[in-house]
């Protein structure tokens, strides 16, 4: 049994999900090789426990992202019964391309994996769970935070190869920075404020949390109606937008039926409200009875800490 893990990077460093990929592969036994596109994070990868070999793949083509060029450079170095990547946008593209070049099947966004291989994933936007068996050799992308990270303490041997391929996708210019805030109808995470925010200027505290999470900022109708600064496009609810994010954070929102109509199908709901009797707690998976003044700064700090490792 041989596994090749394609490492994930962000901001020029190894992304922590890489250790989770190794963590998922370890129980399956055998040798684990980590391939680092562009050489990013190869020394950190070598320290993940359970890794037998790291291949740092350098080359000009890794300066910008070109799926075909990357996959052509990596593909000859990838071997074994199982190829793993993260299910980020680039992770999915790369592993599909590599799998296709090797003529092996790929299964994406898997949340559990056992010997053999048997994998589960959610389908129909989370309305059902599918368990599949996949005959090796095969490629699988894993959802972040679904697997235990492998610990540190490894000392794998690292080889560096330079295999640049011709780049066909040229980046001409940047149009907008990645951090531009999303619309509530598009976001996976939404943080909304209500009348309890007291003043529209206090929405800046929601913005700060949103920036940490890459979330969109929404509002209750009371907030939209009371304050001109809060546009109707932010309103969630029966007469606003209906949203189904993975996480909905309601701050200073009482949870009127018309508000619930727009957000109760969110996968997880976190409510922060100073009134323990507020109806929003009836639909919240996690409720924090506190003023936002107390809770939001702590929330921001802890999220920032968590997101950075």
């Amino acid at each position: 049994m041989k596994t090749t893990v394609i490492s994930e990077s962000s901001n020029g460093a190894l992304h922590p999900v890489t250790a989770q990929l190794v963590g998922a592969a370890s129980p399956l036994g055998g040798q684990i090789t980590v391939i680092c596109p562009g050489g990013v994070g190869s020394s950190d990868a070598a320290h993940i426990s359970g890794v037998s070999k790291v291949i740092s793949v350098e080359g000009d083509c890794f300066e910008t992202y070109d799926c075909l060029a990357w996959s052509k450079s990596l593909s000859p170095l990838v071997e074994g019964d199982l190829i793993l990547s993260s299910s980020s946008a680039i992770g999915r593209e790369l592993i599909s391309s590599i799998a296709a070049s090797k003529g092996i099947p790929v299964v994406q966004d898997v949340i559990s994996l056992t010997d053999g291989f048997s994998a589960t994933r959610t389908i129909y936007s989370g309305k059902a769970i599918e368990e599949v068996s996949i005959s090796p050799p095969c490629a699988i992308s894993l959802r972040a935070n679904s697997f235990e990270s492998a610990g540190e303490g490894g000392s794998a041997e690292t080889t560096t190869v330079d295999v640049s391929q011709e780049v066909s996708v040229a980046v001409k210019r940047a149009l907008a920075r990645a951090s531009e805030r999303l619309d509530v109808s598009e976001a996976d995470i939404i943080i909304s404020g209500g009348r309890g925010m007291g003043d529209p200027a206090n929405f800046s505290h929601l913005n700060e949390v949103a920036d940490v999470l890459g979330a969109a900022v929404g509002a209750s109708r009371a907030a939209v109606d009371t304050w001109d600064e809060i546009p109707h496009s932010m309103q969630v609810g029966q007469t606003g937008k209906t949203v189904t994010p993975n996480l909905y954070i309601a701050v200073g929102i009482s949870g009127a039926i018309q508000h619930l109509a727009g957000m109760r199908s969110s996968k997880f709901i976190l409510a922060i409200n100073k009134d323990p009797e507020a109806p929003i707690f009836g639909v919240a998976d996690y409720g924090i009875v506190s003023t936002w003044e107390d809770a939001l700064p702590v929330l921001k700090d802890h999220l920032a800490e968590l997101m950075s490792n």
Binding site: C67, R92, A100, V106, V107, T122
Partner: peptide, 12 residues
């Protein structure tokens, strides 16, 4: 399935 395998795989 939300996979996203088809486009890049086909290209390859």
């Amino acid at each position: 399935t939300n996979s996203g395998s088809t486009g890049p795989g086909l290209a390859s």
